[in-house]
């Protein structure tokens, strides 16, 4: 299951784990990503709060957490090669979150609702 925030972050859910990244639409809008500012493993993130930032040559955006929980892994490949986000944003998630309140997923947009946000 993959769900979205209207600010273009997704949460791909596997069991109690959410893989959080940015949507292909957002990646295309940003253009060449040059830097991803990620939290540290062990940090707590809170749904709706910013947990990092993503930067291209022409823009920078805060990253908002779709769900609350603890960061159990960050995608270290992005440190040396942030452009992976452009190549395949869904495969190249940014952080892995162990959810503390999966009920929050109900508040997020599904594929169809998210598609209507992108235009």
């Amino acid at each position: 299951m993959t769900k979205y925030l209207s600010s273009h972050e997704y949460a791909r859910v596997e069991g109690n784990i959410a893989y959080v990244g940015i949507s292909p639409y957002a990646a295309a809008q940003l253009g060449n990503v040059v830097y991803v500012d990620m939290p540290e493993v062990g940090d707590d993130v809170e749904a709706g709060e910013d947990f990092g930032a993503i930067e291209s040559v022409k823009a920078a955006s805060d990253l908002y957490a779709p769900v609350s929980g603890a960061v159990i892994e960050i995608n270290e490949a992005l440190i040396d090669n942030p452009r992976l986000v452009n190549e395949d944003p869904l495969a190249n998630w940014i952080i892995k979150v162990e959810m503390t309140n999966p009920a929050e997923l109900d508040e997020l947009l599904d594929e169809e609702a998210y598609a209507s946000v992108c235009h």
Partner: peptide, 13 residues
């Protein structure tokens, strides 16, 4: 370089 951090792009952020 790194202009994306700056006010003309980030405005209040």
């Amino acid at each position: 370089t790194l202009q994306a951090r700056e006010q003309h792009i980030r405005r209040e952020k």
